[in-house]
Write a protein that binds this DNA or RNA. Sequence first.
DNA 1: AATCGTCTGCTTTTT
DNA 2: GCAGACGATT
Length: 662
Amino acid sequence: MFRLFDLNDAQEKAVRTLAGPLLILAGAGTGKTRVITARVAFLIAQGFDPGCILALTFTNKAATEMRERLARMVEASDAKRVTMSTFHALCLRILRQNIDKLGYKNNFSIYDESEQVGLIKKIIARTAARDEKLDAQVAKALISKAKNLGRDCDPNEESLAGAVFARYQRELKNLNAVDFDDLLLLAVKLLKEHPEIQARWKARFSHIMVDEFQDTNRLQLDLVGLLAGVERNVCVVGDDDQSIYGWRGAETSNILDFERHFPNPAIVKLEQNYRSTNVILGAANKLIQNNPRRHPKNLWSQSGEGEKIRAIQMPDDREETRFVTEEIQRKQAAEGLPWEEFAILYRMNTQSRLLEENLRRLHIPYRLIGGKSFFDRREVKDLLAYATCLLNPDDDVSLLRIIHTPARGIGETTTERALEFSVRKKCSLFQALNSPEFQKELSARTAGRVAGFMTLLDNYETRAAAPLAGFAGIMTALMEEIGYWEDLKRSCATPEEALNRETNMKQMIESLSRYEQRSTGGLQGFLDGVSLDRSEEKEDTAGVTLITLHAAKGLEFRHVFLIGLEEGLLPHDRSKAEGALDEERRLLYVGITRAMRTLTLTYCRSRVKFGSAVPCHPSSFLKELAGEFVEQISFEKLMNTPVPKESVKSRFAQLRATVAKL
DNA sequence: AATCGTCTGCTTTTT
DNA sequence: GCAGACGATT
């Protein structure tokens, strides 16, 4: 058999199995993306219409990567016709076409997390009795969970949470808005309730592939079922051992019981790993075997045994971070490696703080993944809210955001009254403010200001609705007219902050302008893109990677440091309380399998938590790992070891490098 | 309407 | 220990 795209036997079998359901169990680092793209290329080579192939991913990054790889394997015109998209993006496409069938308008807004919480807060305030308490964040989590299970709200529900859910859903519809979960929920609902629409989408795809199948939830499984044709050409790729998003609604049962959903599947296991040493894989295998329900797998590689994993106990978190950062400095100098080959992995974002301090002290460049998003910045959100209002003025949440920014003499009292009017008349806030009947209730002064604001929005709406409207220009003009920039500058404490915020705004307008040049999706398309893809393109920054275990999935690094292996942190107390110990074990498994050559595990005897030092105990997972693959090193021994030779050599290497730069 | 101070409560976060 | 939320204050 000739070698297809230079694949191993198992990979080739996965690629060549085209008909019927196929389950590819792809262990960490076994060439999963490679197999999916090769399979798409093979389908095209076999004469299947590229336009009938659908590949679904979770992240835009994965979709983009796949598309780029495919472009190198097949004709550009064919590659373009394959649908490669995230679940949410596909659902959005379905909904933009036909959501009117569910009673929404096609220009609906998409609410992010903070907008959801804002809305829920308001609803709780209006719904809860004086003695009832419900945290908006908790309510949001409950609603999200219910939606991910495919449950619509029950209007007869008696509990406060249930009432809030029902009201939230009703309110969203009035606002002509949907949240992230709705994208899936409503798309599935639409396909289920309207067979003609389902038939249309179903006919469109002959072959469906799903990446990271272990992370799918009920709705996503339903969606795949609704889109699959009678042949059930559904190929899913995933690794149950890397399922770490259960708390997000992912159902491991989707991959564990795949044959229940798609009977008689072909099953291919990819176990040859191209990333790590056998020591690392051995430890990973050993750890994960403690999980009860899983598809048995055993990773192996041809990259030799490799160095033993080091497990080091530290006195406290200060010493831990100091050691790790200095160790990276030593190793980098000794081996002359780029900083990008190193990564520090941790359970919680707060752990990055001490690391950052140390890295800065040592002048080591680093990139911190995660944290606050660009899109959560106040100025960015304001700009987007203005844009959203131009398209969907009935979106009260966005309107409320911009009505006081900058202050234009329309105060709390006025909006309170308008809100009350809108509830009474069952109309949107925008309609209330526009209504002469409402304006009559106001003082002449306030009425004038409201009218002025309405005229402003109306003017820009008209301009935005014009064919060939230049949105970047329109938004700039709008921001200038309302004096947004001066207002923002006034609220900044330091000149640096002002400059920073200005840059963010410019960046936003700039990217809108670029979008207009390459796409025909208009302002709506731009906003959709922003809603669904919040990744910042800052991958160019070089340095040591600081990243949570969750965010590290799918990445690889030559040298990995995994810190804070303590009971209560990893596994996290709260996960243990929720009975999610297996998932914590998988999380560590994901961390271990990121390492290509060396892995260092650290844990502390004491750690500062909530401001004060508390004693810690080694993670129970360390016991599960203990044995031939792991070498225990005590901090004391480490400190008494004389400086190794390379480190002396490294000083020279460093010096030489510095001189060379001059 | 904005600012200051106090209170609270603390994982992970693909879209 | 610190950020974020909320309420009292001018």
